[in-house]
Design a protein around this nucleic acid. Structure first.
Lengths: 366, 366
DNA sequence: ATAAATTTGTGCGTATGTATC
DNA sequence: GGATACATACGCACAAATTTA
């Protein structure tokens, strides 16, 4: 124990200087006592003080100006000028848009992007974040893996905050959260999609959503609210979810969606409309329905989510819910930069309002 | 001038130690002269030598062991464990696949990915690469901007090689190149696509290609070869190219493609088949043709390139040319890792053979 | 097994140079 | 010009770790 507590004088002085900054509330850019003063105060030689200062210089806590003095923080050469971005899926069509938004803003500010792909795997996500922290990133933008589950990596997020680094959560928020986040109001989006189907006379409305993803659960919540408001009872046979493991390869994803579609079609009475978690699912569903001889919207109505390129194509034309995509990425990057410039981690919450984008995949009944 | 050449003793000694390592070919793990010896040799105090050594320690070039000596490199904390990847377009559907391939391999080896988006802009590309080099990346994977033009960033690539860092060129190669590259034989691909159309009785074959991109030019070269081999004269009205600036936003891209399609349709006699630079173009062309009342393949035959998700959809079903996508990314990352492990930059060239993937977008004439 | 030699780690005192106010 | 503060540099001493005689 005593071996542990032993410290050479220069390390003790280093600690003392850190304390001094905290205690005396020295602000960034403010001068700390001169080398001579520090030497006198600690009753050591100036050389020993300099050794302590050298270490703090390396850490970037201090900077010196010859003939003037030693100062606390605030120098522009501070930081690694790298920001991490951890996505749950590089293949998601939305990923490119968000990435572009983030990269555009960061590039302009001279920052580089460290990219990680968690594949919605909590262990992999933890590995990536720890790796990024070792590389001394200035901030982190993250789509949390398994955001709807309890055992995710929130503890690591808190650690980053303790290190006074900004962290922005994309498309998720945590109950007790002091983090900044950029989200879409997915409950409202789910409600809007479902209400639109109801307004068009649909009552037998199915939903296919991703269970491991918080937005998936919230869109489902919106669906339930809209159904309840319209007095339509929920039918468990119409409620289908899938998991990320089924998304790993395009084939697995197709299989999973196809099975869901088959089970919906074989249910009696079969649904007249399907609300899909996102456009990728919607396109897949349409593909499978077409193969089984059903046409959209004549036989079944369809609604997607995200308003992606996929559904804008004339041949497909699926009604969808808007998502800010690139703008969301830009906002996230802007919050990071703002926090870094102000050297003060504020907690900003940006909530985008989704809007219905009508196309020709919903039939009016009655 | 003399002011420039002035260096404090400890910096001169630092340089000398670096020279000494090179000159005496000190291998990683080998001991360098003791502080006392160095002090004596340079006729300075031990303190001054230590200051020089401290800097080299910070740089990670040396490590010390108390009571034993100071050693050159070889410590596991060597290298930044970061690899750069500069893409010309984050929005390209192929980007996600290549990125996944690269990231999978790098992640497993404990490397992180620094991502850059050049947007096919040479100045931006140079900025990104220089920025990455400052962050001390271990290697670089790059899709070169404006690869078909003369004034690109090859000089920077050579600089990186001089620094003994591996660099892998994706989808391009340079005439006098000592770099590693991973490419598809696009001449062959273009030839295969065109020959297939010819074999199906087509003679009035149009091509739409990206001029600023080497693969675009090579696919065009393949087209010309196939036409020549079949004895079909080239018709300039059938040969259309577009540029990256038109690709910046989805709207611009659509406009550019639509104009090209219109000009092809108004040409007399209009083409019976169109060979598109890639699937994205092919899908856009099909969209526009459908809007003008033409159907595929009945009115016009269509062939794409890359065999992407886009053309696999049943509703679209466009014949295409295969591209290794994810595999190409994996290969690039593997070459980087191999070079880093062997501490020897070899020049590996991987050329994938494209294959025709038949769907239902080509009509048999006669 | 012990002592001596070597090498890095820590620490003190001093002197001179240079930049800023 | 003088005062102040950081930058560079020398010499010395002892401690701690390791190797070698």
């Amino acid at each position: 124990m005593d071996q542990e507590s032993y410290l050479p004088k220069y390390l003790k002085i280093k600690k003392d200087i850190k304390k001094l900054i905290k205690k005396h509330k020295i602000k960034p850019g403010e001068k700390i006592p001169s080398e001579y003063e520090l030497a006198k105060k600690h009753d050591v030689s100036r050389h020993t003080v300099r050794k302590a200062l050298d270490l703090l210089l390396q850490e970037g806590l201090l900077y010196k100006e010859q003939g003037i003095g030693t100062f606390y923080g605030g120098k522009p050469d501070n930081g690694s000028k790298m920001v991490g971005f951890v996505s749950i899926s590089v293949h998601d069509y939305i990923f490119s848009d968000i990435l572009t938004g983030i990269d555009d803003i960061l590039h302009e500010a001279g920052y580089q992007l460290l990219l990680g792909n968690s594949k919605d795997n909590i262990a992999r996500e933890a590995e990536i974040i720890n790796n990024m922290l070792e590389r001394d990133i200035d901030g982190l933008i993250i789509e949390p893996a398994k955001s709807s589950y309890e055992d995710n990596n929130t503890d690591i997020f808190y650690k980053i905050r303790e290190k006074n680094r900004p962290i922005i959560i994309l498309d998720s928020s945590f109950s007790n959260d002091s983090f900044s986040y950029v989200v879409v109001d997915d409950v409202k989006g789910g409600e809007a999609a479902t209400s639109y189907l109801i307004a068009n006379g649909h009552k037998r409305i199915a939903i296919i959503y991703k269970d491991s993803h918080l937005p998936g659960r919230q869109r489902f919540l919106g669906y339930k609210r809209a159904m309840k408001d319209a007095g339509i009872p929920l039918v468990s046979g119409y409620i289908k979810s899938y998991h990320f493991s089924e998304l790993e390869t395009p084939d697995k994803f197709s299989d999973a969606i196809n099975k869901i579609v088959d089970s919906l079609l074989s249910y009696e009475p079969s649904p007249t409309a399907i609300f899909c978690f996102n456009d990728q699912v919607a396109v897949e569903v349409k593909e499978h329905l077409n193969l089984t001889g059903k046409s959209i919207p004549d036989d079944i109505s369809l609604i997607g989510y995200d308003d992606s390129k996929l559904v804008k194509l004339n041949n497909i034309g699926i009604t969808s819910i808007s998502h800010p995509k690139k703008l969301a990425g830009e906002k996230a990057a802007e919050i990071i930069l703002k926090n870094l410039q102000e050297d003060d981690i504020s907690s900003e919450k940006i909530i985008f309002e989704p809007e219905l984008v009508k196309r020709n995949s919903v039939k009016k009944l009655n």
